[in-house]
Amino acid sequence: MSTLDDAPDLLYSETEDDLRAAVRSLLTGRGDVPAALDRAESGAPYDTALWTSLAAGIGAAGLLVPESLGGQGASHREAAVVLEELGRAVTPAPYLTSSVIATQALLACGTGDDGAVAKLLGALAEGRTVAVLAVPLSTGPDAPLPNTAPGAAIRAVADAAFADVLLVIGHDGLYAVETAAPGVTVRAQTPLDLTRPLSTVTVDAAALTAGTRLADAGTADAAVRSGLLTGAGLLASEQLGLAEWCLEETVRHTRERHQFNRPVGSFQALKHRMAQLWLEVVSARAAARNAADALATDSPGAPLAVAVAQAYCGRVAVHAAEECVQLHGGIGMTWEHPAHLYLKRAKSAEIALGSTGSHREKLAALTALPAPGGPTA
C-alpha cells in the first residue's frame, strides 16, 4: 500500500527555480529570432558560444555527473528544468542527446576510478566534449536496437554533426569513437525540425576497432536502454516547455490583436480553446515532473512514469503548437514568425525516443490493461 512518503514531488525547489532563472536569462539574452532562423535555414543551427555558456558557464552539461568526476552531482529533476527552458526557446543544442542520453548511458556502464568511461564523463561535464549515442532518434527504450555492424549506415542520428564522440553499439559491447577518426562518416540529412539536425552515421570496422571499448555486450545493452529511458522521460519536460511558450505567446497575441474594436482573445470561441489548452498544459506539467522525479529517485515505477509522460506530453506539445500557428492568423504561417519552428519541433519530438503509440502500448502492458483496439477479455 502506498503512503504519502511514496508520492512524487511535483513542485520545483528553490535550487531548481534559480537554475531556471539562470538558463532563461542566458537564452533570452541570445534570443535573436532572425539569426536563429538564418542558422536553421543554413543547415548549421548550433550557436557554439551559447553551448559553451550553457554547458560550461552555467554547468548544465554536468548536472547528471557525480562531483567526483567533475560534474554537479545534481539529478534528473534539475536536468528537466534545463530542458523545459530549451524547449521554450526551441534552442538548437545537443543537451538532450549528449548531457542526458549519452551521459546516462555512460553512467550505467560503470565508471570505475580512472577508466575511459570516467574520463569521458569528466570531459562531458566540463563542456569540452559532446557525445551522441549512435542510434536513430526514433528509437524507444524497448525498441530493437539498430544494426550497427561495421560499415552499416545508421540513419537519423540527432546532433551527430555537432558531436566529438559517437557511442557506437558493436557486436561485443559499446565503443567510443571520435567523429574525426578515419572511417567515420557523418552525412547530413534534411530534417523536418531544423533546430535538431539529423545525420546518417557510418563507422567502418577499422574505426570501431580503433575506438575505446567502454562496456561488454550485456552491459552495453542495459546501458543504452537506460540512456533511452532517461531521454524519453526528460524529453517530456522539453515538450512541456514548448507547450508553455506556445500557450503564453498565443494568449499575448490574442490580447493585443483587435477585430471589431475588441481583442480577439475576448471572443468566446477562442477563450474556450485557450482554456482547454491551459488544462492540457497543466496536466502535461504534472506528467513531466512525475517522470523526472521518478528517474531522479531511481523509482521502480520509472518506466511507468516515463510511459505516461510520453503518451501524453507529445500530443499536448503538438496541439499547443498547432493552436499557436492557427490563432496567430496569417502571421503564424510566415517564416519570419518562430511558430513554425515550434510546430516542427513538436512534431519531430512526438516520434522521438518512441512514438506516442508505442508508449501507450507500453503503458497498457505495465498496467495490465488492454491497448485501444486490442483483444478484450
Rank of each mutant, 00 (worst) to 15 (best):
Q310S: 14
V81R: 05
P375K: 04
V224S: 10
Y312W: 06
A21W: 10
A222H: 09
C246V: 06
L133Y: 04
L4H: 06
A210V: 05
F162G: 04
G330E: 14
G151T: 03
D204G: 11
A49V: 15
G29C: 09
M274Q: 08
P303K: 00
K347D: 10
S358P: 00
T219K: 06
L69S: 09
L19H: 06
S358Y: 03
P182C: 06
L86F: 04
L234V: 08
L247H: 02
T91H: 06
S75A: 15
E336N: 13
T219Q: 07
A118S: 12
V308K: 03
S13I: 07
A40L: 05
L107G: 04
T230K: 01
A176E: 06
D32G: 08
L353Q: 04
L133D: 06
A371F: 03
G301P: 07
T139Q: 04
L242Y: 01
R285A: 10
D193S: 10
L63C: 02
V82D: 01
T202Y: 09
A149T: 02
G233C: 06
F162I: 04
A215H: 05
A21F: 12
P191R: 08
L240K: 08
G374W: 12
T185G: 09
S99A: 15
E178W: 10
E85Y: 00
R196W: 03
W51M: 09
R345K: 10
L229Y: 01
G218H: 05
G140T: 10
E126F: 00
A217F: 01
A349I: 05
M1D: 14
A349P: 01
E336C: 13
G231C: 04
D6W: 02
H359S: 10
G231D: 04
P303C: 01
L194Q: 07
G112M: 02
V306C: 02
E126D: 13
S68R: 12
A118T: 02
A364C: 11
E178L: 14
Q259T: 13
A160Y: 08
A158M: 03
Q189M: 15
A205I: 15
A207L: 04
A143N: 07
A161N: 02
V224N: 09
L37D: 11
R20W: 02
A125G: 04
R225G: 01
D47Y: 09
M333K: 12
A153V: 15
A40E: 04
K271W: 03
H253A: 09
D17V: 14
T334L: 09
A93C: 14
S299T: 14
S358F: 07
T185D: 13
G330I: 13
T103D: 00
S25V: 11
R257D: 11
D47E: 14
K362E: 12
D114T: 15
L27K: 07
L64Y: 06
A80C: 15
A116H: 03
V165F: 08
L234H: 01
E126N: 07
R24V: 15
Y95C: 08
G115I: 08
L10W: 05
A143L: 05
